[in-house]
């Protein structure tokens, strides 16, 4: 197997605050990789460095190397705009664009890239919406506002929007934390399908969720990655005492 994403000795600073300390992580193609840990441990901070979202935060600094498909995304001459197109992101709260229809939301990324052909857009929209298990629910109201959908549908619309640009890696930042249990179950179900077309890194504070859906697990604590390995090992035979405490619910 080849890793699609390789992070090596990543340090992240907010001004003087050292938020992430020397974290290294590999993600294999077609796997779901969960980042877990108590709140404030830096898992979201780390995730956001993987598509250079910290470039947008004044005072934030990322050191170390992160390679996606062999290319150093922080390397000289790399345009963060072109790079982000290959790395999709799904956010904590569903955030469809409120002035766009379901269809326009789905193909927003393609339209940015200059795709104008109606048939092509429609084909991609259908494929992406099917990929996000939303097609059957919205195929009759593609031209309705994306905000008109339920919370769970909105989040799947956001997943479809990210899938439409065919990302190498899909970053998910606690994608179910704002959803009800039924919608959460639906998105968890979707994960096993999604990893057939992309590689997922998901931040979650829900250990059961991590155990259910992920292939590998990374445990974060106070900016350190204290353990990384196959999910089964993390939950059954944790190497680190702190991991054991965390997964057994003793803190966090």
């Amino acid at each position: 197997m080849t890793p699609i994403l390789v992070a090596k000795d990543v340090d992240i600073f907010y001004g003087d605050f050292h938020a992430i300390k020397k974290v290294s992580l590999n993600a294999e193609i077609g796997t779901v990789n969960a980042l877990i840990g108590p709140s404030g441990c830096g898992k979201t901070t780390f995730l956001r460095s993987l598509n250079r979202m910290h470039d947008l935060t004044p005072g934030a600094r990322v050191e170390g190397t992160i390679q996606v498909d062999g290319q150093d995304i922080y390397g000289p001459g790399v345009d963060p705009v072109a790079m982000r197109r290959r790395i999709g992101m799904v956010f904590q709260k569903p955030n469809p664009f409120p002035t766009m229809s379901v269809l326009d939301n789905t193909v927003a990324g393609l339209k940015l890239a200059g795709v104008r052909d109606k048939n092509q857009l429609m084909a991609v929209a259908e494929r992406s919406l099917r990929g996000a298990a939303l097609w059957d629910e919205v195929k009759d109201r593609l031209h309705m506002p994306g905000m008109g959908l339920s919370g769970g549908q909105q989040q799947r619309l956001c997943i479809a929007r990210a899938l439409a640009v065919e990302p190498d890696v899909l970053l998910m930042d606690e994608p179910t934390s704002a959803l009800d249990p039924a919608s959460t179950a639906k998105i968890e179900e979707l994960m096993s399908e999604l990893k057939k077309v992309t590689t997922i890194l998901i931040v979650t504070h829900n250990m059961q969720q991590a155990a259910r859906i992920s292939d590998t697990c990374s445990v974060f604590l106070n900016g350190d990655m204290i353990e990384h390995g196959p999910t089964e090992q993390i939950f059954q035979h944790p190497q680190d005492k702190r991991t054991e405490d965390y997964v057994s619910g003793r803190f966090g």
Binding site: G30, D69, V81, E166
Partner: peptide, 20 residues
């Protein structure tokens, strides 16, 4: 399965960068 993914990756690599 892996072969399919290789195709997709190759396709993505040829995707145009940001136009001038």
């Amino acid at each position: 399965m892996s072969a399919v993914r290789q195709d997709v990756v190759a396709l993505r690599r040829s995707a145009p960068a940001i136009s001038p």
